[in-house]
Simulated assay, not measured.
Amino acid sequence: MLHISICDDERIAVEKMQRIVENVLEQEQLPAKLENFENGEEFLKQYVIRDDELVILDLDMPVKNGIGVLQELEKIQRNEVVILVTAYDNLALKTFSYGPFQIVRKEQMEEDLPKAIGRFLNIRKRNQEELEFRIKGELIHVKLEDIVYFEKYKHQVYVHLADQTVLTVRENMQDFEKELAGKGFVRTHAAYIVALRYCRKFEKNDIVLEGDVKVPVSRERRQMAKEQFMISRRR
């Protein structure tokens, strides 16, 4: 079940956010558990990584503000599940290096927060999609969000998963590229397709993934791969 945390020290703002969230969930007919927190420290004390979560976070709070929370979430690569809410543009600018999901202005919250939640739910739905692999006669289903990258070597494709499992399949990279189009993957090289969610930085000839794994980027795919990487970091 989706778990949604709302973190803001202003009671009126929390009530408004909760009402907006409940309206979106009702429209989507989606069950979820909602929790409210008054400041960043209170939120972090109880925080555990959940497979299915959304955090709606105010930037300007006492004790520990939203930037402090982002710094902690960045360490465990969970900023993609955050929607930031702020009344101050200067604070929002300071968060860009942490790559939050989206920033919403409080004065436009009624209009923009439902859109931000809708985008999150669309990405969530996409990540919950699965690929089907046939391995030694057995059909195996793997969630897209669990796939880190594909590696072609000779006549086989190695599918590297987040838990460090590697599946070996006899498939065509062109078929994977078509099937994964628009789903958060980019082909960086004739022999590699990577999941943008696991990309940490872009270097001249490589993309660096979690765990400092380097995947090559070919010259002809460099510009496109870099553009997709930058777009993914702004989400």
Rank of each mutant, 00 (worst) to 15 (best):
F133N: 03
N122G: 15
H189K: 04
G68K: 09
R119M: 10
I56P: 13
I207L: 15
K125Y: 15
Y88T: 02
V208T: 10
L167I: 10
K64M: 15
L91T: 03
E22I: 12
Q164W: 13
I123G: 04
L139T: 09
M1H: 11
P31A: 08
V157G: 06
S218K: 00
L70T: 00
D9S: 13
V69K: 04
E42S: 08
S97H: 00
Q108T: 01
Q77A: 13
F120Q: 00
R105F: 10
D212T: 07
L54A: 10
R197D: 13
D89P: 10
T95N: 08
V69T: 02
Q71C: 11
K178P: 03
E179I: 00
Y149A: 00
E38R: 11
K178S: 11
L93H: 09
E227D: 10
P100R: 01
F229C: 13
R221T: 06
K154D: 01
V217S: 03
G40L: 10
M1C: 05
V48M: 12
E15I: 03
S232Q: 13
V63R: 15
D212A: 06
E138I: 02
F96M: 07
F202E: 08
F43L: 12
N90F: 14
F185M: 07
F37Y: 15
K16W: 04
E26V: 06
E177C: 09
T188E: 12
S232P: 01
V157Q: 09
Q156H: 12
F150R: 07
G68R: 02
I193P: 02
P100L: 09
L131C: 02
V213F: 07
K16L: 01
R19P: 00
E26M: 15
L59N: 03
E111Y: 06
I4V: 00
L180C: 07
F185W: 00
E179V: 03
G40C: 12
K154Y: 01
I20C: 13
Q228C: 14
E151G: 05
V63A: 15
T86C: 11
V157A: 04
Q29M: 14
V159R: 04
D8N: 13
N127V: 02
V194A: 14
A13K: 02
L84D: 10
R187T: 07
A92V: 00
T95L: 10
S232W: 13
K226L: 12
R233K: 09
